[in-house]
């Protein structure tokens, strides 16, 4: 787990503001992550962690401020360009409810590849590889309703990493799991991300999960604070 200090910034948010109705969710937030870096985003409930992740990944446009990703200004891209970028360059893992219930685990993991035009057989072969890597190859023919929460999270991590994203966004990826399963999912996630050089934005309120990161950022009242400066 060596932090890639020398790598240039891959994704940067500058002075981002986002208000929902009269609630200021982000109030001048800044954030930077380098290629291959794992950054934990921590902070109290309602402080703006998920909103920051949504802005960083181009899911939600900020009211003001900029997001730069690998030379692109996300705000200057069209909706179609932003969606395309999300499909090819970003992966997502959430707390729960993210697998398509009608599809088998293999089909779920193959889905991101199918959406970018990879032929079915090739997509399912790569999906099976990822399921094996996350130690859930045994349930590959099951549907999400027929597997445990911990297995479901591993399938979700496989799906998020199958198209070799440059940034993985994970919002409380172990929030619904017990300690042992949460640990295992984190170990597999971190090992896979480090091997592929994927940067990880890891939103969590659990310090034991954050301890898998290289560095943490604390969000308070919509402002992000880099804790490397505090120590």
């Amino acid at each position: 787990m060596n932090p890639p200090h020398a790598a240039p910034a891959l994704l940067t948010a500058t002075d981002v503001h986002k208000t929902y109705g009269s609630t200021p969710a982000l109030d001048g937030a800044g954030f930077t992550i380098r290629a291959g870096e794992i950054v934990a985003v921590m902070g109290p409930s309602g402080s703006g962690k998920s909103t920051l992740l949504h802005c960083l990944s181009g899911i939600v446009p900020p009211d003001s401020g900029t997001i730069h990703y690998a030379g692109h200004d996300l705000g200057a891209l069209s909706d179609a360009e932003r969606s395309a970028l999300r499909r090819t360059d970003f992966g997502f893992v959430f707390q729960f409810g993210q697998l398509v219930p009608e599809l088998t685990c293999t089909e779920n993991v193959a889905l991101p590849l199918r959406l970018t035009g990879v032929p079915r057989k090739e997509a399912e072969r790569r999906a099976t590889e990822w399921l094996t890597r996350l130690e859930v190859q045994d349930v590959r023919h099951h549907r999400p309703g027929q597997i445990s929460g911990g297995q479901g999270q591993r399938v979700a991590v496989a799906r998020a990493l199958v198209n070799d994203p440059r940034v993985l966004f994970a919002d409380e990826p172990t929030g619904a799991l017990d300690s042992l399963n949460g640990e295992r999912v984190m170990q597999l996630l971190v090992a896979a991300a480090q091997e592929t050089g994927t940067a990880v934005v890891l939103v969590t309120h659990e310090s034991r999960v954050a301890a898998y990161s290289h560095r943490e950022v604390v969000v308070r009242d919509g402002r992000a604070r880099d804790m490397a400066g505090a120590a």
């Binding site: 787990m1 170990q187 971190v190 310090s207 034991r208 954050a210 301890a211 898998y212 990161s213 290289h214 943490e216 604390v218 604070r225 804790m227 490397a228 505090a230 120590a231």
Partner: peptide
């Protein structure tokens, strides 16, 4: 607040070390 932040960072630094050792 700053005092607590500094302590928090120190605790997490040690937790990171232990996590690497554990892994």
């Amino acid at each position: 607040d700053a005092l607590l932040d500094v302590q928090r960072a120190e605790h997490l630094r040690l937790m990171r070390e232990l996590t690497v050792r554990k892994t």
